[in-house]
Design a protein around this nucleic acid. Structure first.
Lengths: 114, 114
DNA sequence: AAGTTAATTAACTAATGAGTTTATTATGCA
DNA sequence: TGCATAATAAACTCATTAGTTAATTAACTT
């Protein structure tokens, strides 16, 4: 991920409406109107927010009749996660904690898989 | 971390100059002039970038004679890390990998400590 | 006291961003 | 064909942002 991509990602995430849209999309695909529903702003405004997210690669759109189902794309978020890596040592004093956390996640995964 | 703080954090990070400043500060404290050195823009411009970072809580400034040493503050980055948590399951297909990575880091830490 | 260095403040310009309303495109349905 | 729905595009307003230069504050130096 090169610098401009990271800038576009952060800029896209710097808006609560857009973050709320991403959060909604963790539950599954949704059309533009469905995504606009909860907000007080116009549909056009939400459509523009979606354009920003799409340009940043954070969502993709498909076509289904007159609807454009949107779905979450996480590649840019992985970019953020990678970028954060440099800074984690400043707050994760104990790598033991990370290991313990990973182990607890794994236990949960195995339990959920049953 | 409430919503506006997260927005301010992402907005502050959405600029390559500011991210470069943060990267520099991982090496230790630096004055405004020292931070401005590598950039082609004016000192005033860098001073403004530092103001944005300070307002977002990403750096703090102290006083030493006529200098204002800046240092990295990672609380907002931890906020980003927490926010990312919701999305990690979309790309960390294998938690085994995370566990293996944590273990390898721990081994390195123990080796380095010798 | 006078001058130098470090940094901020003030005032301004140009570009970008978020929102609006109105118009247009494209699909589905009677 | 004609109409309703879903979404985008165009044109515009208002606020914010990134940068500039010039002026100001504060501390050290001679």
């Amino acid at each position: 991920m090169h610098g401009d991509t990271l800038s576009a990602t952060f800029a896209a995430l710097a808006d609560p409406t857009r973050r709320a849209i991403l959060a909604r999309l963790t539950l599954g695909e949704a059309s533009v109107s469905e995504l606009a529903g909860p907000f007080e702003m116009s549909l056009v405004a939400v459509s523009k927010h979606l354009k920003v997210l799409e340009t940043a690669g954070l969502i993709s759109k498909s076509r289904e009749a007159q609807w454009r189902p949107c779905r979450l794309e996480t590649a840019p978020l992985r970019g953020v996660d990678d970028w954060l890596e440099t800074y984690r040592r400043f707050w994760s004093e104990s790598l033991d904690k990370l290991e313990a956390y990973a182990a607890s996640l794994k236990r949960k995964e195995e339990k959920d898989a049953k």
